[in-house]
């Protein structure tokens, strides 16, 4: 473990930014947002950014390829380019876990080369939480907010900043930071963890019970009558899916530029009426069916295909942002029972 003085953090940022683009959370009019670092931006201690760090690897829109026609010929243009190295500082434990969820989708065969390219070039520097919010429920998914994953884990105390590399990529970056950091033991970090754990144990949503969900529960839960009530006021806006770090669905579309076609992909949302529209029309005609899809995917279908891993990390973004305050916690409580008593 290495450490530096808290006031030296900006020097650390400057050193990282010498070699790669560095992004970190900065407060904006719209809440915290990952922003490109320069001397004038101020790192925000804010817990969660409004948009999750999945944007760096799976952006809301990206061009996949282009086509140009000349006479009877169609030229197919590969628009991919090698991503440059970049680092993301300040990722929370829940969000680092979301990369496990996304990796299983995008890096399993056939590998999504666009995503893989960015994953290879991105360094994730996580920061341990010290002031969780009432909407946090990472604990329900066995995520330890005091020991976040990522290439490098960081702990902040009032006076110092502590670093621990978890991967080769992380170790290489720490090597670069060696002039600004010094070796240390983990006493201060352990005591910081303890005090955060005391807060985590008081979180109102800590006892969320998930035993009703998981692989193999499709038949049991699909026709549950609670879906009617849960979905009755859903606007179908898709805010929950767009702020979610684990939502991974996308649409592929062709844009006619007049003399060529650009094929791009963009985030899609199961909450939308044209989601997975096929030649025969739509397979989910009502908002109830669309709503059910979102939660069944996170709590049943995904774990069924991924060794029981849920595709929610308890970040609480959908709790904070849904215009009608309907969310995965309400679904879990209504269908799965209130707590672990």
């Amino acid at each position: 473990m290495r450490k530096c003085k808290a006031e030296k953090l900006n020097d650390i940022f400057a050193l990282i930014a010498q070699d790669m683009t560095l992004y970190l959370p900065v407060d904006t009019e719209g809440g915290a947002a990952f922003t490109k670092w320069n001397e004038n931006v101020k790192y925000s201690e804010s817990l969660n950014t409004v948009r999750s760090p999945k944007d760096f690897f799976f952006p809301q829109t990206e061009n996949l390829m282009a086509f140009k026609t000349e006479g009877k010929n169609i030229e197919i243009i590969d628009t991919r380019s090698e991503t440059e190295d970049f680092a993301v500082f300040g990722v929370r434990a829940c969000d680092t876990k979301s990369f496990d969820v996304l990796d299983r989708v995008f890096l399993s065969d056939p590998v999504d080369s666009y995503y893989a390219n960015r994953r290879e070039h991105g360094v994730i520097i996580s920061v341990a939480c010290t002031r969780p919010s009432e909407t946090c429920f990472c604990t329900a998914f066995d995520i330890d907010a005091t020991s976040p994953q990522g290439d490098i884990s960081v702990w902040k105390t009032e006076t110092d900043v502590y670093f621990e590399a978890n991967t080769e990529k992380g170790a290489a970056l720490m090597e670069k930071l060696s002039a600004l950091t010094e070796d240390c033991d983990n006493t201060a970090v352990e005591s910081a963890k303890e005090s955060t754990k005391a807060i985590l144990s008081r979180l109102p949503l800590k006892d969320l019970k998930l035993s009703a969900f998981g692989g193999g529960k499709t038949m049991e839960l699909f026709e549950n009558e609670a879906w009617d009530e849960l979905s009755q006021s859903c606007l179908g806006c898709g805010t929950c899916t767009f702020v979610c770090p684990t939502c991974q669905c996308y649409d592929i579309k062709d844009f006619n530029t007049g003399n060529s076609v650009v094929r791009f992909r963009c985030w899609d949302s199961c909450m939308y009426s044209d989601f997975t529209k096929m030649a025969h029309g739509n397979n989910r005609l009502t908002q109830k069916e669309r709503f059910r899809q979102r939660f069944m995917h996170k709590l049943v279908y995904y774990p069924e295909n991924n060794d029981g891993l849920f595709s929610c990390v308890g970040c609480g973004r959908c709790l904070a942002k849904c215009p009608i305050s309907m969310n995965i916690v309400k679904v879990i409580k209504k269908i799965g029972g209130k707590t672990n008593e």
């Binding site: 009019e29 719209g30 809301q60």
Partner: peptide, 26 residues
């Protein structure tokens, strides 16, 4: 530039009551 195009503004708006919004029609 912060807009994520979630459409919450439109979906909550009482003046936006088209059965099928032009922006939802592929």
């Amino acid at each position: 530039s912060r807009c994520i195009r979630c459409n919450a503004c439109r979906d909550a708006c009482p003046a936006c009551t088209c059965e099928k919004c032009v922006f939802d029609n592929p």
